Simulated scan of single mutants.
Amino acid sequence: MLLYKDSIIVGTVSLVFFASMLFPKPLAFYFGQRLSAGGGKENRDWWYSLWEHPYFRTAQRKITIIWGTCFLLQAAINLLIVTVGTFTLGYIVSQLLPFAAVALAISLTLRIASQAMNDQHDMD
């Protein structure tokens, strides 16, 4: 049951990422603000001003979808392994899969951020 619990929690986090797409700014925007701009008012104002640019809004939405998808895949793969595999295999996968999912999401996030910066420079 404990191995199923991890999948349910990660699946729920995935759904939160997807649900945030229904709001004016998706979840990745707020995580990005904390990681990129820090907590200072001047940096926060700069980050919020980026929302005016279409390339930035598109990138934030893509990043949100990527994180939601990576977490959803993690939950689905983990559920599959736990259901059809042995306890030992399920345990090993449940310990390693989060690292793979986050590494993939970070890699894709960096790629999208780089592309967004290129799009910005093309517009200038």
Rank of each mutant, 00 (worst) to 15 (best):
L2E: 07
I77M: 09
F17Y: 10
L89F: 06
W47K: 02
Y48R: 08
L110Y: 09
P26D: 08
D119N: 13
Q60D: 08
P98V: 01
Q74R: 09
L79D: 08
M123N: 03
F56M: 03
A59K: 00
R44Y: 01
Q115N: 02
N43L: 09
G90A: 14
F71E: 12
F99Q: 07
I65R: 14
L97T: 00
Y48N: 15
I66M: 11
I81Q: 05
G90K: 14
G68I: 09
D6K: 12
V84H: 13
F87I: 12
W46L: 04
L72W: 08
W51Y: 05
L35A: 15
T83R: 10
F56R: 02
L2F: 12
I66A: 14
F71A: 10
S107C: 09
L80Y: 05
V93N: 03
G32H: 06
V82Q: 06
A105L: 06
E52H: 05
H121Y: 05
K62C: 09
R57Y: 08
Q120R: 13
H121G: 03
G90W: 11
P24Y: 07
Y4S: 10
M1C: 08
A59C: 00
G40K: 09
G38C: 12
L15N: 14
P24Q: 06
T64S: 13
Q33C: 01
R111F: 09
Y30N: 02
P26W: 05
C70T: 00
T58H: 12
L89R: 12
F87C: 09
W46D: 00
Y55H: 12
L80T: 08
L104V: 12
A28T: 11
H121T: 08
I81P: 02
Q74V: 10
L3N: 06
V13C: 14
S49G: 00
S49K: 03
V13S: 13
D122K: 04
Y4A: 13
V16P: 08
N118L: 04
T58F: 14
E52K: 05
G40C: 03
L108Q: 10
M21D: 11
L79P: 00
L96N: 01
L96H: 05
V10P: 04
A116E: 02
A101D: 00
V10R: 12
W67C: 07
D119F: 04
V10S: 09
A101Q: 03
Y91F: 10
I8W: 15
T64I: 07
W46P: 03
L35K: 11
I106C: 13
I9A: 14
N43E: 07
R44C: 01
S36F: 11
T83W: 14
F23R: 04
I81C: 10
H53M: 01
L73I: 00
S94D: 15
E52R: 01
F18W: 13
L22R: 07
D124E: 04
W47R: 03
I66V: 15
D122S: 11
E42H: 11
L110F: 15
K62V: 14
T64P: 05
L108R: 10
V102E: 02
T109I: 07
